[in-house]
Design a protein around this nucleic acid. Sequence first.
DNA 1: CCCTAACATTAGAATTATTCTAATCTTATT
DNA 2: AATAAGATTAGAATAATTCTAATGTTAGGG
Lengths: 143, 143
Amino acid sequence: MSAAKTKKTVTNETALAEQLREVGLRPTQQRMALADLLFGRGNRHITAESLYNDALTAGVNVSLATVYNALHTFTAKGLLREITIDSTRSYFDTNVDEHHHFYFEKSGRLEDIDHTSVKLARLPEAPDGLPVSRIDVVIRIDG
Amino acid sequence: MSAAKTKKTVTNETALAEQLREVGLRPTQQRMALADLLFGRGNRHITAESLYNDALTAGVNVSLATVYNALHTFTAKGLLREITIDSTRSYFDTNVDEHHHFYFEKSGRLEDIDHTSVKLARLPEAPDGLPVSRIDVVIRIDG
DNA sequence: CCCTAACATTAGAATTATTCTAATCTTATT
DNA sequence: AATAAGATTAGAATAATTCTAATGTTAGGG
Ligand SMILES: [Mn+2]
Ligand SMILES: [Mn+2]
Ligand SMILES: [Zn+2]
Ligand SMILES: [Zn+2]
């Protein structure tokens, strides 16, 4: 039982480490712990501060600066997507597939909208035919 | 000629003051100067810092804190619209009509897209039938 | 008209969000 | 195991934004 648990943990840790190595990142203690918090439980929209608090609660020894470093590094490697919606906080999204968002202004919560739920018709040409890197649709909700 | 010029200036100042009074704001020196810089020349996308620099260049005696105050107050009164696109700076838009944006990631410049140029079809229902306060479409351009 | 009280506005100080960089780790190579 | 090169961490610094106490404005009242 203890052995099984240990084995499972080791396997998970190895998988996580492998995931990080695959994108060219060293599987350090801090990154492993943060990746576990981020990718362990379904899609999430988090802030640096909320992830930092999650880490503190989980007893992970990491600084807020390192949380920022990890979030930006993961974003650069395509493991996260940054969403800017509110000038007082940056959100990071564990769902990196094409999708859009409801934003609840009062609570600051984000909710995914599947990209097939929104049809963008009659899109204008980008100036000079420059490449479009992304189209973001945010539906702001009063509540 | 000098009289005409003075008259015209006074008229402009009076119009500007009236515009401010109409939304319930006192036409103070700082606000008049900032409103003049903001609304004097067509639609603009500005940041607190850029407006502050415009004010310094124009010889207006105003603090950066007051620029923030004015931008937020004007936004609350519907004279401006705040656009959050980049976590490092907040933009304020003198165009308060319904419209969307191209965002040039490299330069940080915003460009208006007329709302009739974008057709949003098949929009999902807001959860709990809550009211939608705004829909923002941002087309991010690499260049 | 001036005074005054109530309230609005300003801006220096404080705070918060984010980034910088020097010290510390990690790892590939021997 | 030792080393060196580069990556990562986190305390310190900075930049963006907000707070609050001082100052300014204005609508009555004398
Ligand atoms: Mn900010
Ligand atoms: Mn900030
Ligand atoms: Zn999402
Ligand atoms: Zn605009």
